[in-house]
Simulated scan of single mutants.
Amino acid sequence: MKSKMKIVAVVLIIIAIFSARSVVRYYFPLKYSDYIVKYSKEYSLDVYFVIAVIKTESNFKRYVKSNKNAIGLMQITPDTAKWAAEKMNITNFNEDMLYDPEFNIRMGCWYLNDLKAEFNNDMKLVLAAYNGGRGNVQKWLKNSEHSTDGKNLDYIPFQETDKYIKRVEVNYRIYKFLYNNTLMSILANIYY
């Protein structure tokens, strides 16, 4: 009788875990996964990192525009997009393209990879630059009030950027927990 009760208890715990995961997935959706997987792979980025950036930037709302004029899923400003389009050899760029999920994710991943190369794969610095500007991060690294070694940020003077990095890190952990098997399945179907 005790072994049957243990089995029932284990089954109930498993059901509770899967039910809770389903509820949490409602608040942490996974949209545009094909594009995210495709361009994360193309630009050598962690899929969950890109998802976390999109969740933090736009909450997967493709038509969102910020008060700073950043557009789309990955919240790219028109000035940054024009510069990136030149670097990416996109000759027909116009601002409306940023509302297209595939284009926005492609450009956002390209830009994250560009920052990754500049900041030696330090994803905290990449996030700081994505949110606060690469020039600001370079200044902070040269300032002993912000960096004791010139390679790591000990203090981020923009509170918004500091909070942004923390939100992306939390979203990263949540998405990795919720979708680990799902994304591996998508990768397997697309690339193998």
Rank of each mutant, 00 (worst) to 15 (best):
A70D: 14
L73N: 01
W83M: 10
F49C: 06
I76Y: 00
P78W: 05
A81S: 08
N92F: 15
M88H: 03
Y35C: 07
A85Q: 15
F49P: 02
N89A: 15
S33C: 00
D79H: 11
S40H: 04
M88K: 09
A84S: 10
Y43E: 08
K61Q: 12
M74N: 06
V47L: 00
S40Y: 02
Q75K: 04
Y63W: 11
E42F: 06
F60C: 11
K41T: 05
T80W: 04
N94H: 15
K68M: 12
I36Y: 04
D34G: 00
Y63E: 14
K87D: 14
I90R: 13
V50M: 03
T80A: 10
Y39W: 02
K65M: 08
N92V: 12
N94W: 04
S66D: 05
N89S: 15
Y43H: 11
S33M: 06
V37F: 03
I36C: 09
V53E: 01
Y39Q: 00
I76K: 02
I51Q: 03
K87H: 14
N89G: 15
A52T: 01
Q75H: 11
S44K: 06
A70C: 14
I71P: 05
E86R: 13
I51M: 06
S66I: 12
D46I: 07
T56F: 06
S40A: 08
E86Y: 09
Y35I: 02
T77W: 08
K82N: 05
I76N: 10
N94D: 15
E57Q: 12
Y39P: 05
F93G: 12
I36D: 00
I54N: 01
K38Y: 03
N59D: 05
N92A: 14
Y48F: 08
T80Y: 01
F93P: 09
L73T: 02
K65I: 12
I90W: 12
N94P: 11
F93Y: 12
T91G: 09
A52N: 03
R62M: 11
T77R: 01
S33L: 06
F60A: 07
S66N: 10
D79I: 11
V37L: 03
W83Q: 06
S44V: 00
K61N: 15
N69S: 15
Y39M: 02
M88I: 08
I36R: 07
A85D: 14
E42G: 02
E57F: 07
K61L: 08
V50C: 10
D79M: 09
N67H: 13
I90Y: 05
K41M: 01
F60Y: 14
Y43T: 13
I54D: 06
W83K: 10
E57G: 14
I76V: 05
N89I: 13
I36H: 09
I54P: 00
V47S: 00
E86W: 04
I51T: 05
T77G: 08
L45Q: 01
K87I: 13
S40R: 06
V53A: 04
M74G: 09
T56H: 07
V64F: 07
N89H: 15
A85P: 04
T56R: 10
K82T: 07
A52M: 02
Y35G: 03
N89D: 14
Y35S: 11
K61E: 13
T80S: 07
A85S: 15
G72C: 12
D79Q: 03
T80D: 06
K82D: 09
M74D: 03
T56L: 09
K65S: 11
F49K: 02
I76P: 05
N92Y: 15
K61T: 11
V37I: 10
M74Y: 00
E86D: 14
L73C: 08
